[in-house]
């Protein structure tokens, strides 16, 4: 068949496919027309018709392929199911990396805390005297943070916590592609920092109460978020180090798809923590006892959620 006849014969089909490419969902007879299009493309190639015709049909086929196979699946309310069931289950399923991440954090924090506790001078090898005194001044009675704070400075701190903490969360995860080392380093660094500041401020009777009552509530979400982000990064690193029967690339891809919900959960927790930190932890009018109680309740709730939510449901 001459090309001209061929074009005339199938022009109707091509035009109808071109017209339906604009819509979002394919019509009922679209798969049939798509297969007919593929047939004409194969014929045009095999018979050596002109390159411009083959190129045009290839573009059409690409668009039709995307329309047909790229249509999003209809799914149940994924978000609620994810919150109630899938996220805590995933955390429990990955308990090894979560424990590893938690262990690294606690170990470094405890190590630094012990060192500083035994001899306060060690603190200066992790941080400068200026920075330490800055932290002290932050948690002293009646200063910056615990003075009269208004809504606008709460908003400032909220913006800052989002920018800083959630970005850290993402970086901890991304560091995992370097064989997990990036995540380990980030978590360990945060452990050192936390251990140092917590011990330093605990040893100072002026700040101990202010510090612990300030951090206890949002730490329930923020530290958990950091640990989970670190665990997600470690899972990436492990996927490269121990690919099993997959190639390293395939193993990395599979692990990433599986672990992404955990990272998102960690990011959401960090986001909520920023909210609490800016608008609750900083309130000076709450007595420390109330903060301790609320913080304790939140810790219990988070642990209960991660340990028990979604068990026993199908």
């Amino acid at each position: 068949m001459k090309q001209k006849l061929f074009e005339a014969h199938y022009a109707g089909l091509w035009q109808s496919i071109e017209a339906s490419l604009g819509s979002d969902t394919p019509a009922a007879d679209f798969p049939e027309r798509y297969r007919a299009l593929c047939h004409t493309l194969a014929l045009a190639r095999q018979r050596g018709y002109s390159p411009s015709l083959v190129a045009r049909l290839s573009e059409l086929a690409l668009g039709a392929h995307r329309l047909l196979y790229g249509a999003p699946e209809k799914r149940e309310l994924v978000l609620m199911r994810w919150v109630r069931r899938d996220f805590p289950r995933l955390v429990r399923a990955e308990w090894r990396v979560v424990l590893l991440s938690l262990g690294v954090f606690l170990f470094t924090a405890a190590l630094v805390a012990l060192a500083v506790y035994s001899n306060r001078d060690y603190a200066y090898s992790f941080s400068s005297a200026y920075e330490l005194s800055h932290y002290e001044s932050m948690y002293r009675d009646g200063l910056e943070r615990f003075g009269e704070r208004k809504a606008d400075s709460d908003m400032l701190m909220f913006g800052f916590y989002i920018w800083n903490n959630v970005s850290i969360c993402f970086r901890v995860f991304a560091g995992g592609v370097f064989f997990g080392l990036g995540s380990l380093l980030f978590v360990a660094f945060n452990g050192v920092h936390f251990g140092l500041i917590a011990t330093w401020l605990t040893l100072n009777p002026e700040t101990v109460n202010n510090f612990w009552s300030f951090v206890i509530t949002h730490a329930a979400l923020e530290l958990t978020g950091l640990i989970l982000a670190g665990a997600a990064g470690l899972r990436l690193g492990l996927a490269i180090l121990k690919p099993g029967r997959l190639s390293r690339g395939a193993s990395l891809r599979a692990a990433a798809g599986r672990i992404l919900p955990m990272l998102l959960g960690a990011a959401i927790m960090t986001f909520l923590a920023a909210f609490i930190e800016a608008f609750w932890s900083s309130r000076a009018d709450m007595p420390p006892l109330v903060k301790y109680m609320v913080g304790g309740l939140l810790w219990a709730a988070v642990l209960r959620y991660l340990l028990f939510a979604g068990r026993g449901e199908s």
Partner: peptide, 20 residues
């Protein structure tokens, strides 16, 4: 005409959204 600290807070939020 918000106060300076509220503005800075909002700007940090915007920066976060633009980055990620």
């Amino acid at each position: 005409g918000f106060s300076g600290r509220l503005e800075t807070g909002l700007m940090l939020l915007v920066a976060f959204l633009l980055l990620w």
